[in-house]
Write a protein that binds this DNA or RNA. Structure first.
Length: 595
RNA sequence: CGGGAUGUAGCGCAGCCUGGUUAGCGCACCUGCUUUGGGAGCAGGGGGUCGAGAGUUCGAAUCUCUCCAUCCCGACCA
């Protein structure tokens, strides 16, 4: 039993000034967590109870799926991460330190290497597989900008699992088992989620899905198709490509003077206001030019983890912006940055503002690799730069007049985009990444030499999957999902107690003894109680604290308790619905529904 | 890393522009009395390196410079 009179807790009447999102604000105000360091939080007694319940649900579902728990150090040597390249690839986000002998160490951001080496250490036969093992561990990432309390910290807790299989079919099965376990876990945590296709980023690997809790406080943007249910992280969205068109009998491209058209908008305006350049007079059709008819070519510099750089040109429809995040996701681990003035000086064939496919591409004068949006299909016609100041080329046909080096999904996604699968409308939303599952493949097993003997005695390289759930982040996501203007509203499965019992009578009256008795009986019946037994605060404070703390059921021992028969008031925190019940039925009524 | 804002008691803030006794207010905390069904009242009290350092000045929370930290937007981010 938790007694408010002695609980290590102080609730705050005001919101902390540095907290923006609801989960951060309320968890601090209600006395669950305190900031201890930039991106680091202390769990107070109530918070730790919730944390442990969340952790226990995750653990139970992992165990139920047949995965086994292990535990690694968070402090690790450099070598394994050097072997896989992640000592470099992780960049500034890795917490690095030196021991007294000057050895490089790190605080692990995730543990692929160690799991791989552990399995290599112990197992050597295909008959030992499949295997899935997991841990719940503190992870460290030197985030450039920790924010939103528990949602993005530099120290956080994560459940990470790894699967080991001899072949792709086995990996597929392990992946599906994790996917099912995650669905069961998030259902029990009362966390709403959308499963979206994702990119695997710095982790490497192929198939990858994220579980996103759809909340405005989330940092991830994702799309859902209103038609077929396709859902994807915006970084991984595949937009609908147009059908290729015939190039037979299409008018030749012409080069036109287009003075004073530094932007797409001014270019389109000029085209539409110059009779000789209208689509009709060029033999196309009757409609006016739009920004979507133009092709803009954006130059970026790619920086690879080893420090090497390379220029890249990206062609996207003129009505779109380049989304650097999407581009980066496609090109990982290379990081794109906008072209600088010095970069332009190094490539004299590029005429700023009038760059066109005439010079782009590996086989053209600039020798810059040229990737285009999937909408730039063979036979599509474009207005684009003529590689001369003040001139554009009109009606340039992809596949006839220029050949890109490939396609890339790098245009900003908007609500106007259509689903790449069914052509339906896409809807953009924000979400918190609460889980990520992906098929790593053999990246780590190859780098670290994890093989097992196959049935024929020959070594087989093991294929792996990696599966994460942010435990501390899940606590925040639950708080973010379940609260109102008065405070938190925990789902029963993770609440710090089943019942918030309070005394609401004059000191010296019979209520205290009745409440004490009821609290003991509830505990004996296996119903956990947070007992507001404080004698020195007014009932208003008790009600306000109860709503802030957010235990699902609030039971009040007040005026009615002294009557015959004695009554208590029971209030549902979430709905606000109250009812009076006889004391004799208290235990039956207060038992949580799922027990 | 770029832009913006902020840093004064546990929390929320005023004071700074225009330098001047002992740095203020609300909440929280402590003591006493009263009060007790929706963030009580009265009286008394404790708690401050005014983010840090340097400078200007007879005198700095206040002016100048440097640094640090936090928050927001962007960049970045399983």
């Amino acid at each position: 039993m938790l007694r408010m009179s002695t609980l290590f807790l102080r609730t705050l009447r005001d919101d902390p000034a540095d907290a923006e999102v609801a989960s951060h604000r309320l968890l601090v105000r209600a006395g669950y967590i305190r900031r201890a360091a930039p991106g680091g939080f202390t769990w107070l007694p109530l918070g730790w109870l919730v944390y442990r319940k969340v952790e226990e649900i995750i653990r139970a579902e992992m165990n139920r799926a047949g995965f086994q728990e292990v535990h690694f150090p968070a402090l690790l040597p450099r070598e394994p991460y050097e072997a896989t390249g992640r000592w470099t690839d992780y960049g500034d986000n890795l917490f690095r330190l030196r021991d007294r002998r000057d050895n490089d160490m790190l605080l692990a951001p995730t543990h692929e290497e160690m799991f791989t080496l552990l399995v290599k250490d112990l197992f050597s036969s295909y008959r030992d597989l499949p295997l899935s093992i997991y841990q719940i561990q503190t992870k460290y990432r030197d985030e450039a900008r920790p924010r939103a309390g528990l949602l993005r910290g530099r120290e956080f807790s994560m459940k990470d699992s790894y699967s080991f299989d001899v072949d792709d079919a086995g990996l597929e099965q392990s992946y599906e088992r994790h996917r099912s376990a995650y669905i069961a876990t998030f259902d029990r945590l009362a966390l709403p989620y959308v499963i979206v296709s994702a990119v695997s980023g710095a982790m490497g690997g192929s198939a990858s899905e994220e579980f996103l809790a759809p909340l405005p406080a989330g940092e991830d943007t994702f799309v859902r198709c209103t038609g077929c249910g396709y859902a994807a992280n915006v970084e991984a969205v595949e937009v609908a490509a147009a059908d290729a068109q015939s190039i037979e009998g299409r008018p030749d491209a012409i080069v036109a003077d287009t003075p004073d058209t530094p932007t797409i908008a001014t270019l389109v305006e000029l085209l539409n206001s110059t009779d000789a350049l209208s689509r009709a007079s060029l033999g196309w059709d009757d409609r006016p030019w739009t920004a979507a008819d133009t092709l803009k070519n954006v130059l970026v510099t790619l920086r690879f983890p080893d420090g090497r750089t390379e220029a890249l040109a990206v062609g996207i429809p003129g009505d779109r912006e380049l989304d650097l995040r999407r581009l980066e996701a496609q090109l990982a681990p290379a990081v794109p940055a906008p072209f600088s003035d010095e970069d332009f000086e190094r490539h004299p064939s590029l005429v700023k503002g009038y760059i066109g496919p005439g010079v782009l591409g590996s086989s053209n004068s600039s020798q810059i690799r040229y990737l285009v949006d999937p909408r730039v299909v063979d036979g599509s016609a474009w207005v684009t730069g003529a590689d001369q100041a003040g001139r554009h080329v009109i009606g340039l046909l992809a596949g006839r007049d220029f050949l890109p080096d490939g396609t890339v999904e790098a245009a900003e996604i908007t609500n106007d985009d259509l689903c790449g699968r069914c052509g339906g409308a896409l809807r953009l939303d924000r979400g918190i990444e609460i889980g990520h599952i992906f098929q790593l493949g053999r990246k780590y097993s190859e780098a670290l030499g994890l093989t097992v003997a196959g049935p024929d005695g020959e070594p087989v390289t093991v294929t792996m999957g990696s599966y994460g759930i942010g435990v501390s982040r899940a606590v925040a996501a639950i708080a973010e999902t379940h609260h109102d203007e008065h405070g938190l509203c925990w789902p029963a499965a993770v609440a710090p107690a089943d019942v918030h019992l309070m005394i609401a009578g004059k000191e010296g009256g019979p209520q205290r003894a009745i409440a004490e008795d009821l609290a003991s009986q509830l505990e004996q019946a296996g119903i956990s109680v947070l007992f507001d037994d404080r004698a020195d605060v007014s009932v208003g404070v008790k009600f306000a604290d109860a709503e802030l703390i957010g235990i699902p059921t609030i039971a009040v021992v007040g005026r009615g308790a002294a009557q015959n028969p004695g009554m208590i008031e029971v209030k549902d925190r979430r709905s606000g619905e109250r009812r009076d019940i006889p004391l004799t039925e208290a235990i039956a009524s207060l038992r949580p529904a799922d027990r």
